[in-house]
Amino acid sequence: MTILVTGATANIGRKIVDHLVAAGRTDIRALTTDPERAALPAGVEAFRGYVRRPESLAGAFDGVDRLYLAPSADTVTEVLALARAAGVRHVVDLSGEPESWWGTVCTAVENSGMSWTHLWPADFMENTITWSHQIRATGVVHEPFPDAATAPIAMDDIAAVATTALLSDSTGNRAYPLSGPEVLTRTDLLDRIATALGRELTFAKSSREETIAALAPTMGDQATWYVDNVLTAYTPDPTTLPLTSVFDITGRPATTFATWATTNTAPFTSLDS
């Protein structure tokens, strides 16, 4: 039976496709808005569609047994109804705890009548790319909570967990809180980026308004939402973070932030370097 990956050219979805191919699966259908430009691996079936446009999904779920669901709170209930009607048995969703801003997705999946695996990730390592303009322009990052801590996780590790869940024979319902392998403050993260770049970077404690203004060049209108919903959610309590979750589920060590920073210097590098 076919595995359908929605958002298959987005950050996590594409990595899931690659992990499934590496695992030897040949029954992968990839949902993408532009199959001609998707550049998917050989043997992967590209299907034109988008979860935010349920009317584009006719036929997408035909023959599908398992589904990776990219988050789309506005249309999730309709998409899940189409999936269930087509015979999908299990949904692996990227969401968050019911009380989080992704809770709509989580709740809809649980109410869908299909079995499910929730992926509830901590802060993405890739979210530090929101600092890229500030790092390139001045070397100073502005945020309000320099000592706020979390255990950020690499998107590739989330994709590896999703792949494990998609390939599992289990049809039970479970939620996986996910995090990276170490608790780091915001200043710790910047220090590791500085080491990867080989240059000095500074953290400036800033007001909410100053932070939004500093993030706007990279985030645009999303800067206010990010400051009010993400930056305020960091926890300094390491006992609440599942630091071994990636290894426990996949059997492979989670990516450290230092490793991620070393292999992702391009966004932080001066445009004329």
Rank of each mutant, 00 (worst) to 15 (best):
V161Q: 07
P146Y: 09
T33Y: 03
D147S: 14
K15V: 04
A154C: 12
G220A: 10
I129Y: 05
E126T: 12
P71R: 05
E110S: 12
G198I: 00
N229W: 07
G139H: 08
T240P: 00
G139Q: 03
E99Y: 14
L178R: 11
T211P: 06
A85Q: 14
R208D: 08
A122C: 13
G180F: 03
T211W: 07
A254E: 09
R252M: 03
G198L: 01
L4A: 01
R192C: 01
T259C: 00
V76C: 10
T262N: 09
M1E: 13
D93T: 05
D228P: 06
Q134P: 08
R136P: 02
D65Y: 01
A81T: 14
R208E: 06
D221V: 07
M114E: 13
E200M: 12
T250R: 10
F203N: 03
L40H: 00
D65K: 14
A196T: 08
T239N: 11
V51Y: 07
P98D: 09
M114P: 14
R53V: 09
A70R: 00
R25G: 04
K205C: 11
A83S: 10
L67T: 08
H142D: 04
L82I: 07
T104N: 11
T250A: 08
A213F: 09
A22I: 05
I158A: 09
T244M: 08
P41G: 06
H118F: 06
L4C: 06
T263H: 12
A8F: 00
H19V: 00
G24M: 05
T26L: 06
C106F: 06
T9Q: 00
P54T: 12
D123L: 15
D272P: 02
